[in-house]
Amino acid sequence: MHLPLLGVGLLVFWLLLSGYWTNPLLLTLGLLSIALTLWIVARISRQYRFGSPWYLCRRLPSYLAWLLLEVYKANISVLKNIWFPRRHPIAPAVRRFPIRAKSRIGQTIFANSITLTPGTVSFDVAEGEVTVHAVEEGAIAELMDGDMNDRVAALEEAPQ
């Protein structure tokens, strides 16, 4: 169970949000709300097992940095579609292709990364395949054989 770790995270989150670190009444209310949240999370995780995501943490920072750059590039490309519709006409396409990541959390990260980057959005994830809508055909081709699929798959490789 990683509930204690979540509790510490929530405590830091609450302290940063509130800014009142000495008022006993507010601190008590904060602790109560954290306890309530932990109880709800424990109830949910009894029904939906998601596995422990902590082994992802080692490679996550470099992936996020790469994703930021990717989001920036995708923004520029969609801006071209908006500003210069004649030179860069939109050509929407829908494709279905396999995800290389095997775990549920890996597939979730991949689908969310696709949706976060403008120009591509994931419809549906089922049986290790994702359906993607893109403003341009090229964006999908890039996703299918591109870096993102490999990088997410590399994320979930267990550390030695």
Partner: peptide, 14 residues
């Protein structure tokens, strides 16, 4: 609609 999602996604990210 599906193309508009991409336009809205610009304002949500960058």
């Amino acid at each position: 609609f599906y193309a508009r999602v991409h336009a809205a996604s610009i304002t949500d990210t960058l």
